[in-house]
């Protein structure tokens, strides 16, 4: 699969990444090359193979339903870019 500039722009938008206009063609080339490498997988028939999501054949452990966390708002918000009255701030969102 070869990606063009429009593909790169679409993917960058989906991933919310600002990409400089001048770098787009380089990304297109690099990403296309990577996909070329990745597509070597098509050499092997995997029709009968079940997908492996995880290295270990284990099941999810369950936690007791208990409140173990205390309020640490000031501590956590001390590293936040912008807060006001306990809220994290973002540019106004219109719904």
């Amino acid at each position: 699969m070869s990606l063009d500039s429009d593909d790169v722009k679409r993917i960058a938008h989906l991933a919310r990444l600002a990409i400089d206009e001048q770098d787009i063609s380089t990304y297109a080339t690099n990403l296309s090359n990577i996909l070329g490498l990745v597509e070597q997988m098509s050499a092997v028939d995997t029709d009968q193979v079940s997908p492996m999501a995880h290295p270990l054949d284990e099941v999810q452990r369950l936690r007791t339903d208990a409140v173990t966390e205390q309020n640490q708002r000031e501590h956590y918000q001390s590293i936040a870019p912008q807060v006001e009255e306990g809220h994290y701030l973002v540019p106004r969102v219109i719904e």
Binding site: R61, R63, D65, V67, T68, E69, Q72, Q77, G86
Partner: peptide, 30 residues
């Protein structure tokens, strides 16, 4: 392990996992 009680002051019941701090992980409630 943060409380689900309704009506608390903003972000006082948002722990590291709820905030999605780097490195935190989820564990499922039984």
């Amino acid at each position: 392990g943060a409380s689900t009680a309704y009506g608390a002051e903003a972000n006082t019941q948002a722990c590291a996992v709820d905030l999605g701090l780097p490195g935190v992980l989820p564990v499922l409630n039984r």
